[in-house]
């Protein structure tokens, strides 16, 4: 219905709670890990949305929910305006064809016993009945698309270097002509000189094919370089989201400020804003009451431990969940 709108993918109040079971035979639920706890964001067609945060903040769980690898506890995922959790089986197949993923570790994500041709064609074979010849044609086409030689279809993953394997993973994601690709830490396992190559490639194919990316990374410079919009997650919640440039220039949430100052600029003369966050990320099992960041926050006041702040608008496309106006 809303397919004319610019928003392609939208998460609404998404939650995923994992049960902690105790007891040996009949496990009883002793508590919940609130991995994702009410996350809402939207990704525009042809743009990149970057999710940043420290490990355990729920970035990857969010990606898994969108890929339907996990079932959300509550909330909805809209794709082109349609709620995919209410789709029929056949439409669901259509959806999984148009949402693909590239994972962090190119060693773990490619089956060592499969040839490149089989790895790349698997999403095609699963989602549509194509004649074998057409499948091979398509495989060669995507290999060319990412800049690998089509003749490498008969090789095995171990015959490629770590960097080239990630190229194969990108080719596999492209095979079923997706609309959205979820990039879960796509460059963090790669060498410095290879990273730039992959980031350029991802940008180039996005432009050429009009793809939409959801980028998950912990490296702020990578997210900054790739994304139009971004969201900062902390213990299962989005604490700040909006236009990427705007957030980098005027971070409003103290956690974002801390993250930015902890990021090491590759320039020894850069003015180092030394705001080192003390303490560690709290466990999502028992998140602190009120604002989840307050135990580490230097601006925390009484209200922070009592009331959970809601996202509010601070600029045209900039939302922050903080009780105070700390915009810099």
């Amino acid at each position: 219905m809303l397919s004319t709108s610019n928003i392609l993918l939208e998460a609404k109040n998404l939650r995923k709670h994992f049960p902690i079971t105790k007891g040996f035979i009949r496990g009883r639920v002793a508590g919940w890990i609130r991995a994702v706890d009410g996350v809402s964001f939207s990704v525009n067609r042809g743009e990149t949305f970057g999710l940043v945060g420290e490990s355990g903040c729920g970035k990857t769980t969010t990606a898994k929910l969108i890929l339907l690898l996990e079932e959300p506890t509550s909330g909805s995922i809209l794709f082109g305006g349609e709620d995919i959790l209410a789709l029929s089986e056949t439409r669901l197949k259509e959806y999984s064809k148009s949402v693909q993923a590239v994972f962090q570790d190119p060693y773990g994500s490619l089956d060592p016993r499969m040839k490149v041709a089989n790895i790349i064609s698997e999403p095609l074979v699963v989602s549509q009945a194509l004649p074998r010849k057409a499948v091979i044609e398509r495989v060669k086409q995507v290999l060319l698309e990412v800049g690998l030689e089509p003749k490498s279809i008969n090789r095995f993953p171990h015959q490629f270097s770590g960097g080239q394997r990630q190229w194969i993973a990108v080719a596999r994601a492209l095979a079923s002509e997706p609309k959205v690709i979820i990039l879960d830490e796509p460059v963090s396992a790669l060498d410095v000189s290879i990273r730039a190559q992959l980031m350029n490639l991802l940008k180039a194919i996005q432009e050429r094919l009009g793809l939409t990316y959801l980028l998950i990374a912990h490296d702020l410079a990578v997210v900054k370089h790739m994304s139009n919009c971004m969201g900062v997650m902390y213990v299962g919640r989005l604490v700040e989201h909006g236009d990427a440039d705007e957030i980098y220039q005027h971070p409003c949430h103290p956690y974002t400020v801390g993250l930015l100052s902890a990021a090491l600029p590759a320039n020894p003369d850069a003015p180092s804003a030394e705001i080192i966050l003390s303490g560690e990320v709290p466990s999502p099992i028992n998140p602190p009451p009120g604002c989840r960041f307050h135990p580490r926050c230097s601006h925390a006041k009484g209200i922070c431990s009592e009331k959970e702040p809601v996202l509010r608008k601070v600029a045209a496309n900039h939302f922050v969940a903080c009780h105070f106006d700390l915009g810099g």
């Binding site: 410095v192 000189s193 190559q197 990578v222 900054k224 370089h225 440039d245 590759a266």
Partner: peptide
């Protein structure tokens, strides 16, 4: 020189990164 140039920067916005072609 190429390594230093290939790093994405936090300040400003660049469209493309300078790359070192090929593999080690």
């Amino acid at each position: 020189a190429a390594l230093l140039k290939s790093l994405p920067k936090l300040e400003g916005r660049q469209e493309w990164l300078t790359t070192i072609e090929g593999q080690p």
